[in-house]
């Protein structure tokens, strides 16, 4: 997709739908956003793993991983209420104007992965880019091998895309859902994602593992993938930093000579290994 001539100028868009995902002190909502210009919306192509800058006039912009699959007719993002922009988004209603810049970042190297088994490991709101990836794989099932899906959250209330996840559980042979602590009526896994990963113990043979979630989870997941025999080049993750420009100019999201906004957010662990102070 061709970027606008002025990379700082966002596209006018509006909120088509809002769905509550998590009701908590830090609530999460999923927003369905559509660009005003139909033609632009049609041409808004992206890869799973890419991000968008979503802005509200007078408040500012923030970057979000795209949760919707590339062939959807809209852009979906899941937003946890945290700072200025996310709070303003949470206060928005259906129909409200927002502004979108993007797509931003590299996305998952889905072509490279063709013919391989895919292991998706997500925690909390980190499921958003993996949701996009999952639906992309579903649409191209023939191109990929076996799929393993592990998703965890603090409690059953903190699971994002709950119904979809349970749907995936019904559909896929290997889908594992876990919560950190026991709950009444919960019959699935209990425990942290890295531990469940060990229990499931997917084979590293001809596989890639993609993990996304809180930094602490990612760290242990990577450690455990190691134990399972995954090589650094078979492990992918997405990173999160404070970002402003989204095009590798403003400086704040660098890790060494790489910019998360431009060279990421998707990195193979092989790359990250060589970098200092990743999180």
């Amino acid at each position: 997709m061709v970027l606008q001539l002025n990379p700082y100028l966002p596209y006018p868009a509006y909120i088509r739908g809002i769905r509550d995902e998590v009701l908590d002190k830090r609530p999460i909502k999923t927003f369905t956003i559509e660009l005003k210009d139909e033609k632009l919306m049609k041409n808004f192509t992206f890869k799973p793993g890419q991000c968008v800058m979503v802005g509200i006039i007078g408040v500012g912009e923030a970057i979000f991983a795209i949760a919707s699959p590339p062939n959807a007719d809209c852009i979906e993002i899941s937003v946890m209420k945290m700072g200025r922009v996310t709070t303003a988004l949470h206060n928005c209603n259906v129909g409200d104007k927002v502004f979108v810049r993007g797509p931003i970042g590299n996305g998952f190297p889905v072509e490279e992965w063709e013919g391989k088994n895919i292991v998706l490991i997500a925690g909390g709101i980190g499921i958003t880019p993996l949701r996009s990836l999952y639906y992309y794989i579903c649409d191209n099932r023939g191109k990929y091998g076996e799929l393993t899906f592990i998703y965890g959250a603090r409690s059953s209330k903190d699971l994002c895309f709950k119904e979809e996840i349970f749907e995936i559980e019904r559909k896929e042979k290997t889908c594992h859902i876990t919560i950190d602590f026991e709950e009444e009526g919960w019959t699935r896994h209990v425990g942290f994602v890295p531990d469940v990963l060990m229990k499931v113990s997917p084979s590293p043979k001809n596989s890639v593992a993609i993990t996304c979630g809180p930094p602490i989870m990612i760290r242990y997941v990577i450690q455990n993938l190691h134990k399972l025999g995954f090589k650094p080049s078979q492990i992918y993750t997405t990173l999160e930093k404070r970002m402003k420009c989204g095009i590798g100019k403003c400086g704040r999201c660098n890790i060494g000579s790489l910019y998360v906004c431009k060279d990421g957010p998707v990195f193979s662990y092989e790359t990250l290994q060589k970098l200092p102070e990743v999180f």
Binding site: K244, C250, G251, R252
Partner: peptide, 24 residues
């Protein structure tokens, strides 16, 4: 040095998105 920040500055009926130098 070229780091910058992008912020929205509001007045009464209008505002401006500006970029300003920032410092690492």
């Amino acid at each position: 040095c070229h780091c910058f920040d992008i912020i929205d500055e509001n007045y009464v009926y209008e505002g401006e998105r500006i970029r300003i130098w920032d410092s690492c």
